[in-house]
Structure formats: C-alpha cells, structure tokens
Amino acid sequence: MYKKILVAIDLTEEAPQVLEKAARLREAHESTLVLTHVVEPVGYAYGGDIPMDLTELQDQLGKAAKDQLAAYGNQYNVAADQQIVTVGRPESEIHRLAKELDIDLIVVGSHGRSGFQLLLGSTANGVLHGAVCDVLAARIT
C-alpha cells in the first residue's frame, strides 16, 4: 500500500503522462501525492567557470518552475504545501525528499532508453539506484 507518492516531473510537455499515472495510483491506494521539480544549478551548465553572478537567473528559473508546478498542482488536486521546487542534482534531491518526507513510492518519467543510452544514465535510472522506497518509471510515449 502506497500512502505517500512523490511525483518527480521535469515540467516538459510530457509531464502530464507521468502525472496521469500517479493520479491513478493515488486513487487506487488512497494516497497523498507530493509533486516535485528539481532545478539544476545554472552553474552546472557552464561548468562553474562563468565569472558572473547567476543568482538572478537561478531565481527566475525557480519562480518559473514554482508557477508551472502550481498549475499542475491545481489541475491534479495537489495541495500547495505538497508542491516542492528545489535546486540541486535531480537524483540526489529526489532521494533526499523521499527520506525526509517518508515517501512510499517515487514516480518518474522514463523514455524507455536501452543499451548504451541506459548506461550513459538518465534521471530515472539515477533515482532507481539509491532509492529508499519503490520507484515506478512511467514510460513516456
């Protein structure tokens, strides 16, 4: 029985596919959904070698993510206090939230990669390894 389900979405046009599956699980298990999106630090994209303050850009990305997550929260009836935007490495932050919030199931999207693509890594693969609870990788079509 899954009482608390963490739904980690990337806020792309594919997010509703993951949310729909999580919503069905919520109904089947009478669970609470917690939505999360992890914003990667802007410095990661540039290797941290940019000699300028990226704080304002990071704040703008965080605000945009909160707004989009709130829209999904409204659409899928997830309370505002169950919508979390955090900054960091997605796998690490999802693992941290799962522990802190006593999550029973993590739901993430997966593009169904195989072979070398899977070995190169994906967020879903990273979440699977090291998770303290069950993980459902919802296939995105």
Rank of each mutant, 00 (worst) to 15 (best):
E100V: 02
L101I: 00
A138T: 02
R24Q: 14
G73H: 12
G88H: 14
L118D: 13
V39Y: 12
Q68I: 00
P90I: 00
L6Y: 12
L101W: 14
V135H: 04
C133M: 13
G121L: 06
A98I: 05
Y76R: 01
Q117R: 03
F116P: 07
E27C: 00
R89Y: 13
H111G: 06
S92L: 05
D10N: 11
L128H: 11
T12S: 13
K99A: 05
R24W: 14
I5A: 01
N125D: 15
E100C: 09
G43H: 13
G112E: 13
L11S: 07
V39W: 13
K66V: 00
Y2R: 02
Y72R: 01
H95R: 03
E14D: 14
F116V: 07
C133P: 13
S110N: 05
N74R: 09
V108D: 09
A71Q: 07
I106T: 08
S110I: 04
T32H: 07
E91L: 02
G62Q: 13
G47T: 00
A138D: 05
P51D: 11
G126Y: 15
L54S: 05
A64M: 06
R113D: 07
A80M: 03
A64F: 10
V18S: 01
R26L: 06
I5M: 03
D67R: 02
L57R: 10
A124W: 14
Q68D: 10
P90C: 01
N125L: 06
V42N: 04
D134Q: 14
D81E: 13
L35A: 03
D10M: 00
A124G: 05
L25Q: 04
A80H: 11
D134L: 07
L128F: 15
K63M: 07
I84P: 01
T55R: 09
Q82P: 02
G121Y: 15
A80C: 00
G130S: 15
A65E: 08
A70H: 13
S122T: 08
V127R: 12
I140N: 08
V132C: 09
A65N: 12
A23F: 14
A98W: 14
G115Y: 12
N77V: 01
L19R: 02
R24C: 03
L19A: 02
D134N: 15
E20H: 11
L35D: 01
K21D: 10
V39F: 12
R139K: 15
V38W: 11
A124T: 01
R113A: 09
D102F: 11
L19Q: 03
G48S: 09
I50G: 05
H37W: 14
G121I: 10
A22M: 12
K21H: 13
P51G: 08
G88S: 09
Y46L: 13
D81L: 01
E27R: 10
I106P: 13
V127E: 09
L61H: 07
R113S: 07
L6G: 02
